[in-house]
Amino acid sequence: MHLEVVNQVARPVEVTPIVVFHEVSKWYGNVIGINKLTLQIRAGVTGLLGPNGAGKSTLLQMATGQLRQSQGSVRVLNRQVWNNPALNRFIGLCPEQDAFYEWMTGWDFVHTCARLSGLRRGEARDAAKRTIESVGMTKNQGRAIRGYSKGMRQRIKMAQALVHNPEVLFLDEPLTGTDPLARRDLMDIIQRLAGEGKSVVVSSHVLHEVQSLTPNIVLLNHGRLVAEGHVRDIRNLIDKHPHHIVLVCDDYRKLAGRALAWDDVEGVRVLADQSALMVETRSPDDFYGRLPALSLEDGMAIKAVYSDDDNLEAVFKYLVNK
């Protein structure tokens, strides 16, 4: 059934596949992570979209050689991935987990990753300097990572993925939990990379994030390919469902007052235990668009923005049951 759905959605212009999954399955004991997935990801930026547990991280971990497929074949840049460390010269991964060598400074971390990638001393120094600058962390590069904000941590994580100048980048939920300014900057970085000719695969469970980066979308659910193609086709489906966005902010009551005044906001629920608001809107683009300005001008200090995936789940149900 899902193949029919896949065929309904317009395919992008034919370009060289960078990542090829052929009949790939992955089991964790009795639990299936990826189910007979056949997928070609082409050069450019591709958004990997799916709710939590859809198999996005599993797919990225297989594409970066951390996990071995139980069945089928995974190729990146036309090479087998599993147990092929030489391929890692050409790929970079920004993992989802917020884990670091906390005692290191940002500079030290990126420089060490450069050296681990095989760059010589001078090359590593130059690459670390250049990459840290490109993610806007030069000012904070001398501070210990343990003191970084979420946004800084995401930036420095991005820098380690870029430091060896890979051809293909895999970014696993790079925007999750970041503040609006960091989010905007990280999106700019990804778009700049695309402009430099890098191929980028970005996973997310928030359509809005992905569509700001690329029109090429791959939709996963329960380890299966649900749809792939142009964002407008998926967008049409998703806009039929209200979008829930959670904003974490100390002054959440004031923020609630502001949000309710906007026409596109259909409802606001206060999550006092999390110092947060859940906003319901049918125009997420407009809503997200206002956040950086709100954070800057009103001094609202929005600490984090994230979207639950109820709306995506609804779309997936729609797509799968259609």
């Binding site: 951390q66 147990n83 460390p85 991964l93 060598y101 095989g118």
Partner: peptide, 15 residues
């Protein structure tokens, strides 16, 4: 446990 092994596994170093 500290989930830092990813940074090592994605380098061109055999396991």
């Amino acid at each position: 446990e500290e989930q830092t092994i990813t940074y090592l596994l994605v380098r061109p170093i055999p396991k």
